[in-house]
Nucleic acid binder design. Sequence first.
DNA 1: CATCGGTTCGACCGGTGGTCTAAGAACTAG
DNA 2: CTAGTTCTTAGACCACCGGTCGAACCGATG
Lengths: 201, 201
Amino acid sequence: MPRPRFARLDPEQQENILSVATEAFAAEGFGVSYNELIARTGLSKGSMYYYFDDKRDLFLTVIERSMGQLLIAPEPPDWGSADEFWAGLRGLYNTLMAAFQLQPEAAGLSRALIDARRTGQLGDELVAWEERLGAWMGGLLVQGQRLGAVRSDLPPDLLLAGAMALGEAADTWLLTQLDSGDLNGAVDLAFEFMKGSLEAR
Amino acid sequence: MPRPRFARLDPEQQENILSVATEAFAAEGFGVSYNELIARTGLSKGSMYYYFDDKRDLFLTVIERSMGQLLIAPEPPDWGSADEFWAGLRGLYNTLMAAFQLQPEAAGLSRALIDARRTGQLGDELVAWEERLGAWMGGLLVQGQRLGAVRSDLPPDLLLAGAMALGEAADTWLLTQLDSGDLNGAVDLAFEFMKGSLEAR
DNA sequence: CATCGGTTCGACCGGTGGTCTAAGAACTAG
DNA sequence: CTAGTTCTTAGACCACCGGTCGAACCGATG
């Protein structure tokens, strides 16, 4: 997160920095040259490091700002039955995709985030984030198993790895479908794929 | 691939270079410092670049040498029925894992390869390799569909993305199970997971 | 006016992968 | 044996990367 000073900076300048960074990261991913990004803001390197600890700090700030409300809630929701479980999950997906359609740069950032996470370019903060995601997903799977919605015939770590891989593949595929006419149908398909792989049989 | 000169180099020196590189890449992945790797071979930078175009060239050479016979065959096998299809696939997995157990460094290299591919650190050559893998997997899926073994109710690109994600997750998980007692059982589980997700229903 | 904290700036650092030229080694022709 | 040519080696050098740091600047306060 940015140094407290950043809040005291001229709001116009704040907006300038964040919008330049958002555009850069969304378009080119985390791999974009920080030197170049800084130059694009018009600030000097020293000033940039005066407000943000480092590149990751700025990246995460941008992510938080653009996708804060979309990001995984700390607690998985609590559903009462297997049907509710799948319907609720389906609802989460819908919400997410609708939000992506309204904020196109969020989709770009999401791609950048997935990519940077994969790459391991982000240090402790994102490792923590990844653990949070794993824990959230793991909690979800356990809940689903308790409700009899999720299969219990696989080792938990394999199930989790598979679920996360499928989720990521589905997300990535859905991001390619954002502009296709039938987003709802696409979400249906991706979701059915995941459900079919994970549900109790 | 290495410059032709490399073949004319003293075999002992060849072996030295490749084994140092194998060890380095297997242990630390593609991200290992090339400068450091070169220093570890005892060669000068100039000499290294005299024999190999660049880091990727050496990496791919090492991959090819250690895992050449394991890598995807150009043509997917041809099976006659749905049962044969799944049994054949299962057999492929078994062969691969057995080989990994016999050549531990191949497992490390495999991890490095998966990782580098993900990261996009490897340029055209690996993009080509990835396309080959995609085409192979795609061909496999089409064949499976023809035999009624693989589901046909999803868009091909979604099915392919899911299959590759599942395959990668399964591979990665299996690589963590190499030292566990029951490798056969682990392959069973991972394979059943994939099969359950992809088979016609 | 002097001081002093907050702010700005860019030179600088060690690292990366990759290039290039000049010297050395080895082989060939006369 | 020598002169010329080609193959090989060595490491200085390059542009770039993310990140650091001290000097200068600026505005408010005493």
